[in-house]
Design a protein around this nucleic acid. Structure first.
Lengths: 237, 237
DNA sequence: GGATCAAATATCCTATAGGATCGTCGGACG
DNA sequence: CGTCCGACGATCCTATAGGATATTTGATCC
């Protein structure tokens, strides 16, 4: 309930910085007050999202342990957390494997869920979003997104900011968890950067900046519906 | 929701029993090759839900290992999954602890989320629910629920069936995750069994049996709103 | 040539020991 | 009396060894 495995982790408690400001570089490398399992979790999740670990790929514990240079224990903890978040699955005495790519039914369910949540989040964000996040929101509306990864990160940040803007942590966490799968699906098909999506984002941003809740909700709903239409074409079955 | 009160977990479950091919029906149930971590996970979650582990209680790894008679590894995996689901939190070099009880803000967020999801699930359930689940739904509408735990289990089953009836696994999973916290909150305050809740349940069930989606949605929305009103009184801050 | 069975491999799961770190408690000092 | 400091206990993190199991591969037979 609190903040399960968020991106928000305080790297330092400030104690080390207070002790000596001699070399923070070495500390940054060695001391990990956040725990090793957390770092391994991020690493594996990053590898999954970047398709370095494609869907339906077997992942063994000790090969990861050798590769990352840590013991098996943090690897197991990280994989358990990933399993709880639906990114890998475990079969008894058969090891872990990344979840298979979404099929048509799962895509339908995911967008039904998003359509239920995100327009509401956009409406609330138009009312409650802080000015600081508002400026950050303007930063992700730029047209300068040449690469595929650039657009993907921009899209992730866009939806994350709006979800957080509503002020409801449950909504933000649920959407973050879902967006990972959208990201993987889109990356699988090397979907071209849709200029339409950038334009739809701008419409939502403008409505939020104008503090117009109804317009933000409608714009977000249309954005998700059209995004669904764009992705659905990749699946025939 | 079942409450297993097993004292010990046998590491080598049913290996010798499997030799005799007398009854394979028991094997289907017992010899669950899902691994020990899964079983430990259920055990700890059950302890949390039954308040045998109250909120904000420290939980150590090796004491659990001694108590359950298994190694530390499955305990760690189970606790990692519980952490990903928000039931416990880990502090570096300080051990695990059950999440503190919900405060007012978290209760508000949780019911805002439920109000967004469950009415929609009820509407879909009225359209798509299978007849088999429909009969199961009738079983949890009985008035014979004298004990507090009896009502809690009935309530859990009621909401779970409706969430699953919609056919969207994401919705069902999200609501199941949230309902655990509602259960804990309600158990903390030993809330009396609300006759109103049973009646509201019946209204929803009748609408679903009549395949009336709009009525089911409205009834579910009112049920959640009134349930929120009943629980909100327990928090002053 | 295809199917079946058995050995071999790779992997997971468990157990135990040892080192590193954090929070706490008690005493000394200003 | 309040504050600081050092030792203690508890806990986590790592490493290694051994047993159990699923998957794969290869040979044999029909």
């Amino acid at each position: 309930m609190l903040h399960p495995v968020n991106d928000e982790i305080q790297p330092f408690c400030g104690k080390i910085l207070a002790m000596s400001a001699v070399n923070e570089m070495a500390d940054r490398q060695i001391s990990r007050p956040s725990g090793l399992a957390e770092e391994v979790y991020r690493r594996i999740r990053s590898d999954i999202m970047s398709l370095r670990l494609p869907p339906d790929t077997r992942v063994s514990v000790d090969s990861l342990a050798r590769e990352l240079g840590v013991s098996q224990t943090p690897i197991r903890e990280a994989l358990s957390m990933l399993e709880a978040n639906g990114l890998v699955s475990k079969r008894h005495f058969a090891g872990y494997a990344t979840s298979p790519r979404m099929d048509r039914a799962q895509l339908d369910e995911l967008f039904e869920f998003r359509l239920l949540i995100e327009p509401h989040a956009a409406r609330k964000a138009a009312d409650a979003m802080l000015e600081a996040d508002m400026t950050s929101l303007g930063a992700v509306s730029g047209e300068g997104a040449p690469s595929h990864d650039g657009f993907a990160d921009m899209d992730t940040e866009f939806h994350k900011l709006i979800a957080q803007g509503g002020g409801n942590h449950l909504i933000a966490d649920s959407l973050a968890r879902l967006h990972i799968h959208v990201h993987i699906f889109r990356s699988c098909f090397r979907s071209e950067i849709a200029e339409e999506a950038v334009h739809e984002h701008d419409v939502v941003i403008k409505a939020i900046r104008a503090r117009n809740g109804a317009a933000a909700e409608a714009a977000m709903r249309r954005h998700i519906e059209r995004s669904y239409g764009r992705l659905r074409d990749f699946i025939k079955e």
